[in-house]
Computed example of a mutant assay.
Amino acid sequence: MNDEFRIGMHILAVDDDRTCLKILGRLLESCQYHVTTAPSARMALNLLRENKNKYDLVMSNVHMPDMDGFKLLELVGLEMDLPVIMFSENDDPKLVMKAIDVGACDYLLKPVQLKEVKMIWQHVIRKKKTSKRSNDDPRFKWSRDLHHKFVVAVNQFGVEKARPKKILNLMNIENLTKEHVASHLQVFFFISYALDF
């Protein structure tokens, strides 16, 4: 089932570094994804606008000269319902948080690894499920107060035993879903790891 789905996926990869783009393209193809590459964010946006239903997922570098990955991510979020994965050599937690806040479903470090690429199909499935559930819902925003409550909940269970469902039940916030908590938990662990490193 997973393999069948993965083989049919169309991915748009974006990076102004043509060598990195070629390597990423080959990596994606080795996982049997259909890949289109774009050496600039503007070209990627044109491809997406011309073929809105062709792509399942976008992978974009953060730092590009013509338009940065955040602007591309923002426009994709406004114009089409596609999951976007950001990647960069920079593991600054503030940058990771910004990417997730703007709407990225994941943030990978360059060079992107094969094991990570093998798992990206999950974001497409998740996006399709959440789109069906809440077509008109605004994107969930994590306020400072909400994040504080989240951290208190994580600390109560301890990092090792903190699970999205447990945190969700303890926080007891209206409109907060298990998916929101799971995604925030993933970012939280990434940042904690980056700060300890």
Results as ranks from 00 to 15, higher is better:
Asp196Asn: 02
Pro93His: 01
Lys94Leu: 11
Lys94Gly: 07
Pro164Arg: 01
Trp142Gln: 04
Arg26Cys: 07
Leu12Asp: 13
Leu57Gln: 00
Asn51Gln: 14
Ala99His: 00
Glu79His: 07
Gln156Glu: 11
Phe189Lys: 05
Val181Phe: 01
Leu108Tyr: 05
Pro93Phe: 06
Ser192Phe: 07
Val159Asp: 10
Cys31Val: 02
Arg42Gly: 06
Ile85Leu: 07
Leu114Asp: 06
Leu176Cys: 14
Ile125Asp: 02
Asp17Trp: 08
Leu82Met: 08
Leu168Met: 00
Ile7Leu: 03
Thr37His: 06
Val76Lys: 08
Tyr193Ser: 15
Glu29Asp: 04
Phe140Met: 02
Leu27His: 00
Thr177His: 02
Tyr107Ser: 04
Phe140Cys: 03
Lys127Ser: 04
Leu24Asn: 12
Leu78Ala: 11
Glu74Arg: 14
Met97Thr: 11
Val117Tyr: 00
Leu82Arg: 11
Asp16Val: 09
Cys20Pro: 12
Lys52Asn: 06
Lys115Met: 15
Lys94Pro: 10
Ser134Asn: 14
Lys94Glu: 15
Ile7Ala: 06
Leu170Phe: 15
Val76Arg: 08
Glu74Trp: 08
Leu75Phe: 01
Asn46Arg: 10
Leu82Ser: 07
Glu174Lys: 15
Leu109Gln: 06
Val14Lys: 01
Val112Asp: 06
Gly69Trp: 03
Ala38Tyr: 10
Glu29Ala: 04
Ile23Met: 14
Thr37Tyr: 14
Lys115Phe: 15
Phe87Glu: 02
Asp56Ser: 10
His147Pro: 01
Ser192Met: 13
Ser60Glu: 01
Ser40Pro: 08
Arg163Thr: 14
Lys54Ala: 10
Leu114Ile: 03
Pro164Leu: 05
Asp196Leu: 13
Ile85Gly: 02
Lys132Gly: 10
Ala104Asp: 03
Ala104Phe: 03
Asp15Ser: 13
Val112Arg: 04
Ser40His: 11
Glu79Ile: 02
Val117Cys: 02
Met171Tyr: 00
Ser60Pro: 13
Asp56Trp: 01
Ile23Arg: 08
Leu108Arg: 04
Arg6Phe: 04
Leu170Met: 10
Lys165Cys: 06
Asn2Val: 09
Gln32Ala: 02
Phe189Arg: 11
Phe157Val: 09
Gln156Arg: 11
Lys118Met: 09
Arg26Gln: 11
Tyr55Ala: 15
Val181Ile: 04
Met1Thr: 15
Lys132Tyr: 05
Met67Phe: 09
Phe150Ser: 06
Lys149Pro: 14
Ala13Thr: 12
Arg18Glu: 09
Asn53Ala: 12
Val35Tyr: 05
Lys22Glu: 11
Met86His: 03
Phe190Leu: 06
Val117Glu: 01
Gln113His: 09
